Computed example of a mutant assay.
Amino acid sequence: MAGEGLPVQLACRVLDVSESGYYVWRSRSPSLRELRHAWLTERIRQIHAASRGTYGARRVHAELTLGSGLVVWHGTVEMLMQREGIRGLPGNRRRRPIQQVPTAADLVDRDFHRDAPNRLWVTDITEHPTREGKVYCCVVLDVCSRRVVGWSIDSTQTSSLVTNALGMAIHNRRPDPGSLIHSDHGTRFTSWAFTRRAQESGLVPSMGSIGDCFDNAVIESFWGRMQVELLNRQRWKTRIELANAIFDYLEIFHNRQRRHSAPGMRTPIEYEKLYPTANWHKSPATRLHPTRGTSRSPRNSGRFTA
């Protein structure tokens, strides 16, 4: 009340407190709790900025506890973020077109839990406009670690878009025969080229029911976050600009920096280090360097044609 211009004597009389007590409170040094909250607020700002402004309270709390080893209650993080107006990006819901092509059976049946990498991959295509035209991106995602193991970017949506992404995943990971590759019933995934590439590598194709996004919920959730955290945050001038931004998001931010809830708030590469002796990564060229061959810029990879 005194801060709003009312006389201190009058404010103390209304609130039934002593004037001396008020002045002692004003001259008192900050408490340990206030100092800790001020320090935590600054740390939260740094984490939120490092996440490119995408993290909400849940992932900020994970970064504080798992990344920095701090002991802090989740409610404290929520309170400090709300007090300072720091918030994550909201989700984005978008209806997808329905394909009317019944093909492979659903071998996943919405059970996306796997105990080790390279047991189940999910794949799908998204598109986003630029001033030059649309950019199409296909991603192959490992459901165990949520790591993007293969991707392809192009200016046209053809069967080569999906076969290139699948080929990159197979080359980098060398999955055991019988591993599943799960997709929707899009014409690119039902094409002869994609089906043969999967079968030649020992992969078993699986497809969810027609028109049901929940049958491929993991990849749909991935696209939703990518739309919010990258694609919808600005207007893109050229295809090359957007392609480079997608490459940076997939290989740098998503795989190496972003904490995911499914693998216990770890990054995908950090989570896969829990399997150092497992025989799931057979590629001789990448056994000692798990990320070799996966961090190629779309400008030089030959996967993008403007």
Rank of each mutant, 00 (worst) to 15 (best):
D111Q: 09
R43K: 15
R114D: 01
R58T: 04
S301L: 07
E19R: 15
S155M: 06
F304V: 11
S68W: 07
T41D: 09
E251T: 08
L288Q: 13
A193F: 01
S51A: 15
E84Y: 00
H113S: 14
F247A: 12
R258K: 15
R303N: 05
M168G: 07
E78F: 00
D115N: 11
V101K: 15
E272C: 08
R259I: 08
M168C: 02
K237S: 12
T294L: 06
L231G: 04
R235F: 00
L64N: 13
G91M: 05
Y271R: 10
L231Y: 06
Y275T: 02
D184S: 08
L70N: 05
V204K: 04
G56D: 10
D111W: 00
E272P: 04
A165S: 08
V101N: 14
S295P: 00
K134T: 12
N216F: 08
A306W: 11
G91I: 05
W39F: 01
V101F: 14
S159W: 03
G85Q: 07
F253R: 10
I98L: 14
S297L: 11
D109L: 15
K273N: 09
N244A: 09
R52G: 15
G186L: 15
A262W: 03
T187C: 12
V24E: 05
T76C: 09
S27N: 08
S209L: 08
R292Q: 09
A193G: 00
V218Y: 02
M265Y: 13
M207D: 07
L203K: 06
S297E: 12
R296C: 02
L89F: 03
K273P: 00
H260P: 03
S295R: 03
T163D: 03
G302S: 06
G85S: 08
V162Y: 02
L40Y: 01
S261T: 09
L15A: 13
A165D: 04
L230T: 08
R36K: 06
V24K: 11
R197G: 01
F214R: 14
A11K: 04
D176W: 01
T76M: 13
L242W: 06
I170Y: 01
H74N: 08
T305Y: 10
T305Q: 12
P90E: 11
S18F: 06
T291H: 04
V101I: 14
H171N: 12
L107R: 12
E63Y: 01
I181K: 04
W151M: 03
V17A: 06
K273D: 09
M1K: 11
H37L: 05
C213S: 13
A62Q: 07
L70R: 10
R93V: 04
T123R: 02
H74E: 13
A50Q: 11
H128W: 11
R36A: 13
P102C: 14
I98H: 11
H128N: 01
R292P: 01
V218I: 15
S155D: 05
T195H: 11
A217Y: 05
G293E: 09
L40K: 03
P7S: 14
S155K: 04
R299I: 12
P177T: 13
F253N: 11
T277N: 12
S160N: 10
I153H: 04
L231N: 06
D184P: 01
P30H: 13
E63R: 14
M226Y: 01
A49V: 13
H185A: 13
T294F: 00
S183N: 10
N164H: 08
R59S: 08
T277C: 05
T65S: 12
R287E: 12
